[in-house]
């Protein structure tokens, strides 16, 4: 199985980037797809609070940390890496990845590379999409319209958005559905994954005392999110590969450049 590196980023804070990473990790776990995560919100990463066992906090400007993330891609037993990029650092991170050859390596098929670009309701989000266009030709680019905390509508009209979206070749779009505010807040306070919250399990692994109503809202939200993520080829490929790991893994090993050398 070829490694898949999924970058989750936004050029603006507060658009729900970490929530999207959490939702994605949660989805992967529910589909029995093992993943590891890197949080570049150095030194204090929010993602690590929810996924302490699989998350490492790194500084993407630090070469040693870049090595920790990228040099382990081929050797890691876990075949999916999710990187939660620091808020406001998307273009910079893509620039770093471009300079050190990550985009080229992905283009030549060494691993799958995807970018989930979380956009908020402001018009500035459309310009962000323009800015990253030059980096997206060799990766799976997904625009995630985040409605999780939003009760308001997006500022831009659909026509304008489609104009920007059309410039992005092969881009895909998903919507992170709205989650009831109180339910979202309770999951946050509990410091547990969405799935654990639904299963009424607290951060220590014991029985939680979470409201059935709020758990129900999260369960419904997860089902809606599954539908959205299920529309992505990238995700479907991962699910398919996870279903038949042994066959794919053996193919991967023989196909790997220099595997027999």
């Amino acid at each position: 199985m070829k490694h898949t590196l999924i970058l989750v980023g936004a050029d603006k804070g507060g658009v729900g980037k970490t929530t999207t990473s959490r939702a994605l990790l949660d989805f992967l776990a529910r589909k029995n797809i093992l993943a590891r995560a890197f949080d570049t919100e150095n030194p204090r990463g929010t993602l690590k609070r929810f996924y302490p066992r699989i998350t490492e906090i790194i500084d993407l400007d630090n070469v040693a940390h870049q090595m920790k993330l990228l040099d382990t891609i081929e050797t890691s037993a876990v075949k999916v890496t999710v990187v939660d990029l620091k808020a406001g650092n998307l273009s910079n991170a893509l620039d770093i990845f471009s300079r050190i050859g990550v985009l080229d390596a992905a283009a030549s098929g060494d691993f799958n590379l995807a970018l989930i670009h979380v956009v908020g309701p402001s018009i500035a989000s459309l310009d962000e999409m323009n800015e990253v266009t030059s980096y997206t030709k060799d990766l799976s680019y997904v625009v995630a319209k985040n409605f999780i905390n939003e009760t308001n509508f997006f500022e831009w009209d659909d026509k304008t958005y489609q104009k920007y979206f059309a410039k992005l070749s092969d881009a895909r779009e998903i919507e992170i559905p709205k989650l009831n505010e109180m339910a979202y807040e309770q999951v946050d306070l509990a410091g547990v994954t969405f799935s654990d919250f639904v299963a009424n399990q607290n951060a220590k692994g014991g029985a939680g005392k979470f409201s059935f109503v709020l758990r129900g809202y999260v369960r419904k939200w997860m089902a809606d999110l599954d539908d959205e993520l299920g529309r992505l080829k990238l995700i479907n490929d991962l699910i398919e590969e996870a279903r038949a790991p042994s066959e794919d893994e053996s193919t991967d090993e023989t196909d790997k450049p220099g595997a027999d050398k």
């Binding site: 109180m182 059935f212 109503v213 709020l214 129900g216």
Partner: peptide, 13 residues
């Protein structure tokens, strides 16, 4: 109100 929804459904369960 979600608090009332909780008062209703959670109370019963």
């Amino acid at each position: 109100r979600v608090t009332d929804q909780v008062s209703l459904f959670d109370t019963m369960l």
